[in-house]
Design a protein around this nucleic acid. Structure first.
Length: 482
DNA sequence: ATGTTC
């Protein structure tokens, strides 16, 4: 099998020509500078970019962001838009962790005020916010509450006192996907979610206390309420067992076949279903319901963080200036209108391990982000840095207003586990002034900074290609890992 | 990512 050709288009862009395979309906475009390109040669995620380019209704290109790596069916770090009328929706194009995403909380606290309390903060957070596989929440919701959460997302959180109106304004889609229907979420999926609200999960999920190390764009930085030397808190988690079960249910149903199912795809894991079919709509409504659950999950953690910081630092939470900078999803399929060539089209845009990064022009009237677009939160590895970016006009034309979602794995979990000793990783982090509280030594090895691509190169690529504008670099000070 | 192999 000959190697997939990667043609360099410019310093930050590679292309897999449509002519490479007669079944490709569009080319593959991968955003990568020469440094990132080294991690791509021979990588299986390139085959996945090609496979996605063959799916019905795909327009423009099958795209990969610089943090691309192999995933279930679609690559992680992938973006693909399908014609609303003639195209598909695919659980593999969203990911098993529906609405996996990030919330960044800004504060008025100087990082130096926090440092003396960092260990106590991590201990308290670890106690109050369950983390790790199968850890249960301290409270359990009932079936009626579950219906409300799945239908209304953060609206439920506001009515219960877990969120403010300001939180909703700073959350993507207002923390509520409208086209959601709990009826399409299986009893099994609901059951798994009943005691998981306010839990972090495991793997790459984390909670970090960070310092704003550098502001690269002063205007955008201050409009996002980010200032050098201040503390931020970043939360990375998703829809937990509930979303996982929704994905499992629909992957299974689609693979069983039936009306609307796309047959003859190159990879069984690419199983997809026409968006307009009954099954396609049921998945869409269940996915949105799981997304609402994830918005609430992250919000409950925000609410816990407010109280933990107040208790440990003995400061009234009101006086810490704790406000959500932005909360967003990086595993979602959404209906959006975009230009494709000279046409304006309604698309089902799949972003799997990719972040929506709309510029001000794409924010609806009345949005508080009309000037610069919304903050784009990019978590890096736990020993290096995370970023806040902003969208551009150019990315609307290039990538449906999308950018990367993180550093992207370089080594598999297994390989990392075998390569890094947890005690060495922890020592090295401590020497750089980063404290860590982890549910297990295993997760420390698997998440070792050396397992990831260089976040600075990933961001340099999305900046250089015009997909986003770097606004702030955040460095970790305290890390909680599930 | 995940009651980490239905």
């Amino acid at each position: 099998m000959p190697e997939i050709p990667l043609e360099r288009v410019d310093d930050n862009t590679l292309a897999i020509p449509e002519t490479w395979n007669p079944e490709m309906k569009v080319p593959g475009i991968i955003y990568a500078n020469r440094e990132i390109e080294k991690s791509l040669v021979g990588d299986r995620s390139l085959d996945q970019v090609v496979n996605v380019a063959m799916l019905p209704g795909i327009v423009k290109a099958s795209m990969g962001m610089p943090d691309i790596h192999w995933g279930y069916g679609f690559p992680i770090g992938g973006v693909a838009g399908f014609d609303l009328k003639e195209g598909i929706i695919s659980p593999g194009g969203v990911g098993y962790d529906i609405n996996c995403g990030v919330t960044l909380i800004g504060t008025d606290l100087n990082i130096e005020e926090i440092r003396p309390h960092i260990k106590e903060l991590l201990e308290r957070i670890f106690l109050k916010i369950p983390s790790g596989m199968s850890r249960k929440a301290s409270f359990k919701i009932n079936d009626h509450q579950m219906d409300e959460i799945l239908s209304t997302g953060l609206q439920w959180a506001v009515s219960e006192g877990y969120a403010t109106k300001d939180d909703i304004l700073h959350t993507e889609d207002g923390g509520r996907m409208q086209k959601s229907d709990p009826v399409n979420v299986s009893p099994e999926a609901r059951k798994r979610g009943l005691n998981q609200l306010g839990t972090l999960g495991s793997g790459n999920h984390f909670l970090e206390i960070q310092a704003v190390e550098q502001i690269m764009d002063m205007e955008r930085g201050s409009s996002f309420n980010l200032h050098e030397g201040k503390a931020t808190i970043m939360i990375h988690t998703g829809s937990r067992g509930l979303g996982h079960q929704v994905a499992t249910d629909f992957v299974r149903e689609i693979q069983t076949g039936g009306e609307g199912v796309v047959a003859d795809v190159n990879d069984r894991q690419l199983s997809s279903v026409y968006f307009q079919s009954d099954m396609g709509q049921r998945y869409y409504e269940a996915m949105n319901a799981a997304a609402n659950f994830a918005f609430v999950n992250r919000q409950i953690i925000v609410s816990e963080i407010r109280s933990v910081f107040g208790e440990v630092l003995h400061i009234d939470p009101q006086e810490m200036g704790m406000r959500i900078v932005y909360s967003l999803a990086h595993n979602m399929a959404r209906v959006e209108r975009h230009n494709v060539g000279k046409k304006s089209m309604d698309l089902v845009v799949h972003r799997k391990g990719a972040t929506r990064a709309f510029p001000g022009s794409k924010m609806e009237n009345g949005s508080i982000f009309r000037r610069y677009g919304h903050p784009v939160i990019i978590p890096g590895d736990m020993g290096t840095a995370s970023y806040v970016l902003a969208g551009t006009q150019e990315n609307l034309e290039k990538s449906f207003g999308s950018t990367c979602h993180g550093a992207g794995r370089l080594l598999s979990r297994k390989k990392s586990f075998e390569s890094f000793s947890s005690s060495e990783v922890i020592e090295k982090m401590n020497r750089s002034g980063i404290f860590i509280k982890a549910a297990s030594p295993g997760v420390v090895s698997e998440e070792a900074p050396g397992s990831y691509k260089n976040i600075d190169e990933v961001v340099a690529t999305v900046a250089g290609s015009g997909l986003s504008i770097p606004v702030a670099r955040l460095i970790p000070v305290g890390v909680v890992k599930g």
